[in-house]
Nucleic acid binder design. Structure first.
Lengths: 164, 164
DNA sequence: TTTCGATGGTTACAAATGAAACCAATTTGG
DNA sequence: CCAAATTGGTTTCATTTGTAACCATCGAAA
């Protein structure tokens, strides 16, 4: 075996491929909230988190949607400015603020959820049944391996609107 | 079917999970080039690309490693400042610059490649054989679905881009 | 009570990023 | 040959991001 210097093939390097893939998907998806409402990703995640859970504090939001304190803080400030959410001081603990979507915020959320789901379905629809199973299983296993998994359910990725 | 407003579960939303996963992996991996040499990701990719292919122009580098012009430009400037690469004006076309790693740049590259490979192996080693197959297959299928796949093999890069 | 250390959240500052303007060399179409 | 459009690459400027410092409140301990 020749001792030629070891070469790393960037195009086949998993961290690079994952990043690139996620970035492409995310960029594509961002149209949904960026083009329609001019939201940033942290803002979208905030809206999404509150729409999903109803009420959270900034810290909880950060945990749920994997955002740093400062991102949460700024996103919340912007959504408040738009009057898409309100802050309610905690009764027991005055440091925390309970965040809730306003009617307007909820409306925006409800408008975007179907688009988001459609996006995901369209993406998965480009794959075969086996490939769908693979990406779901693969991603989940890596999440577990990194001990970063939040919720384990994978049942939802079965099939987009009919088999095949 | 109840008419409750549609909820999106962020934790199970593929674009979000992909992004988060890639971000975690990438952040973890960045120690290898950040902690040891203070490189940024664009700088690492530049080093990696040139180490792999030998010589490229800035445009080619951007294509290979999915970086915007400006990122390439700045990364190249920094690596040049470190004397890790040199620019050679194109003979036929004086707009382009052929970039090549210096001895020092190559040394850094050779030092980091085994670490990068070890990182990838360690990551994959946390998965079962089936899970490994799944993530590889799943990622590849999505790359293809997005039509973003680069070449899976470096065999085709043997020739240094001589026209025709 | 007072003090001290943690915690929730914001802000200040520096670095990284992207869009667009820009410069220079090159090609194209008269 | 020349003017316009193109291309390779850099720079400027505004935005986004992360780190760290910061303010206020809280909980525990003395």
């Amino acid at each position: 075996m020749a001792m030629q210097p070891e070469i790393l093939e960037l195009e086949n390097f998993l961290p690079y491929r994952l990043y690139r893939l996620a970035d492409d998907v995310s960029r594509e998806f961002s149209r949904i909230y960026k083009d329609s409402h001019g939201l940033t990703r942290p803002e979208w995640r905030t809206l999404s988190g509150l729409g999903q859970r109803g009420t959270m504090t900034a810290t909880e939001l950060g945990e749920q949607s994997a955002m740093h304190k400062t991102k949460v803080s700024r996103a919340v400030a912007e959504l408040e400015r738009r009057r898409w959410l309100t802050r309610t001081p905690g009764e027991n603990d005055r440091r925390v603020e309970h965040l809730t979507l306003t009617r307007a915020g909820l409306a925006a959320y409800r408008e975007m959820v179907p688009l988001a789901k459609a996006f995901e379905q369209a993406l998965l629809a480009k794959l075969s049944v086996n490939e769908r199973a693979s990406i779901v299983k693969g991603v989940l296993s890596l999440e577990i391996a990194l001990d970063r998994r939040q919720r384990p359910s994978a049942e939802e990725y079965k099939t987009p609107a009919g088999k095949g």
